[in-house]
């Protein structure tokens, strides 16, 4: 029997890695690597270093794999973000995968502020975010997901997302969540316990010793109209969540929260200068 040649579809692969360490009290670049569709840019910013990850493939589909890796040495504070929104496109032959891995040295702080993830119809995305904090280290993570592009009249009914976030402190689990969104959830999208009719959702997690003390400051921030938000904090964790009818008010809210937690301007790629106060 003659076998048809298997035509493997072109899959994108990308891995970008960046590392910083303290030298004479200043954070300097110690590691930079990029392969495939993943790039990392290092804009010239005052203060703590910033890394901007970029997926040049333009979006993710079945079999695509994208990895971003960050390593901060002891005492280093750095911000990392993405150049644009990550788009998950139709994926009929299995999930696209994103892996984000970070190690933060003793007393260091990582601010991980990727731009929103947009899920298109029939997309399937598995994302794993692993952040390992050394003693005295902390992380501020702010992430949002938007279902389709509302301006284009899109309302995906079959998008799938598995989004797992795992933060450890000195090897012990500190904060974990895994969100799973599928057609079943989307079919119940109006239920108040689920999306309550919204199309965008976000989480901000500040993890590290004393993080719970940030709760009051975050609760005092104004919430944009239409956004439902709440803040909680206990035992090394300060978690803020929001649901919104659109991506933009959610981004405004995220910007405010992130700016308050980091006491620093947002990365320029957020294009929100002056809009968060």
């Amino acid at each position: 029997m003659i076998q048809e040649p298997v035509l493997a579809l072109e899959r994108s692969r990308g891995l970008a890695r960046v590392g910083f360490a303290l030298r004479d009290g200043r954070a300097v670049l110690t590691d930079l690597a990029q392969a495939g569709s993943a790039k990392v840019l290092l804009p010239n910013v005052a203060g703590a270093p910033e890394a901007v990850f970029l997926n040049t493939s333009g979006g993710l589909t079945s079999g695509d794999r994208l990895g971003y890796s960050m390593r901060l040495g002891d005492g280093v504070t750095a911000t990392a973000t993405t150049q644009t929104a990550e788009r998950a496109y139709l994926a009929r032959d299995g999930a696209a995968r994103i892996e984000v891995v970070a190690q933060v040295g003793a007393g260091g702080r990582l601010v991980w502020l990727p731009q929103e993830t947009i899920l298109f119809e029939d997309s399937r995305l598995d994302r794993q975010t692993e952040i390992a904090l050394a003693p005295g280290a902390s992380v501020v993570l702010a992430e949002s997901v938007v279902l389709g592009r509302r301006a284009m009249g899109e309302a995906p009914r079959r998008a799938r997302l598995f989004d797992r976030r795992h933060v450890t402190l000195a090897g012990r689990p500190l904060w974990i969540e895994a969100q799973r969104l599928d057609a079943g959830v989307l079919a119940m999208g109006d239920r108040p316990a689920l999306l309550a009719g919204n199309v965008a959702f976000a989480v901000v997690a500040f993890c590290g010793a004393g993080a719970e003390a940030a709760v009051d400051a975050l609760r005092a921030l104004p919430v944009p109209p239409g956004v439902q938000a709440a803040v909680t904090g206990w035992n090394g964790r300060c978690i803020a969540r929001a649901l919104a009818p659109d991506g933009w008010p959610l981004k405004q809210w995220l910007g405010r929260i992130a700016a308050r937690l980091t006491v620093a301007p947002l990365p320029r790629t957020w294009q929100m200068q002056g809009l968060t106060t």
Binding site: A196, Q228, A230, R241, L243
Partner: peptide, 18 residues
């Protein structure tokens, strides 16, 4: 298999604090 997706209920539980 640990996952959840109840953003509305999560928000309600958090907002209960205030």
């Amino acid at each position: 298999d640990l996952w959840s997706f109840t953003p509305g209920a999560d928000l309600a539980a958090m907002a209960h604090e205030t």
